[in-house]
């Protein structure tokens, strides 16, 4: 459907990639850990190594949770747009096929929040 309008109605998106000074947005959510109320939004250069995202910004954002230190990253299950995803930690975000405003989630089997409450 289109907007009902009195004349031509065409405007640019307010968050297209060209507006982020070389960065692209990546959204990352941790399943079963709702102590973090929502997935996080990060601006990263597309050439950033996936492993560096995990070790740096993800550690900073999720590290408060006691489960984070116990994660065995080899066992983590990843989803991209809800579908299984196998990121290569040594490759860049772009090489892993991650584009502007993609959303990825990770599940940590055996770790499901404070007292198993998914918090």
């Amino acid at each position: 459907m289109a907007v009902a309008a009195v004349s031509k109605y065409e405007f640019a998106a307010a968050d297209s990639q060209d507006k982020f000074h070389g960065a692209q947005l990546l959204f990352i959510g941790w399943e079963d850990h709702l102590l973090f109320c929502a997935p996080f939004a990060f601006p990263f250069p597309p050439a950033m190594r996936f492993g560096d995202v995990v070790a740096g910004p993800m550690q900073a954002a999720f590290g408060y949770h006691p489960d984070f230190a116990q994660i065995d990253w080899a066992k983590v299950e990843w989803l991209k747009s809800g579908k299984p995803f196998a990121p290569d930690f040594d490759k860049s975000l772009a090489e892993n096929g991650l584009r502007h405003k993609d959303v990825i989630r990770f599940r940590t089997p055996g770790l499901n929040g404070i007292k198993g409450s998914c918090s």
Binding site: L34, A38, A61, G113, S117, S119
Partner: peptide, 28 residues
């Protein structure tokens, strides 16, 4: 079941001087 454990954890952490403040922006 879902919210009390979260709050008790936050309360304990705050009592230890480790009150949770998320510094990373959320997805909207």
């Amino acid at each position: 079941k879902l919210y009390r454990p979260r709050y008790e954890f936050w309360r304990e952490q705050a009592a230890k001087g480790n009150r949770f403040y998320s510094k990373t922006l959320p997805m909207l």
